[in-house]
């Protein structure tokens, strides 16, 4: 499995999470998706999807993309404050 395939797998997984929370109001859903990624994804996986989103994020569902951005912001603020 290539690097690209692995990234696509993460995109697929993030979208799956987004689909589960599709019934929620948008902001709540984005928060839940970001929280799920934070709680269950290992930092390498999060870094990879954050990097992917930062470079366009093609294929990420809108809410998943927003959640990744939220994750990115919290990661940035954590690294700034630490």
């Amino acid at each position: 499995m290539s690097h690209e395939q692995q990234t696509q797998k993460l995109v697929y997984m993030a979208n799956q999470i987004a689909i589960f929370f599709a019934s929620r109001p948008e902001q709540e859903a984005i928060g839940e998706i970001a929280n799920h990624l934070r709680k269950f994804w290992e930092p390498r996986m999060r870094e990879k999807i954050i990097d992917f989103a930062a470079h366009g994020g093609a294929g990420l569902m809108p809410r998943a993309e927003e959640a990744v951005k939220m994750l990115s912001q919290s990661t940035t603020s954590q690294s700034t404050t630490s």
């Binding site: 499995m1 690097h3 692995q6 797998k9 709680k39 269950f40 994804w41 290992e42 930092p43 390498r44 996986m45």
Partner: peptide, 18 residues
């Protein structure tokens, strides 16, 4: 304090070289 890798993620990471 961060979660670690799950089994499939470990194998992905292995293929990825990390």
């Amino acid at each position: 304090s961060e979660p670690g890798l799950r089994i499939p993620n470990m194998l992905d990471a292995a293929i990825d070289g990390t």
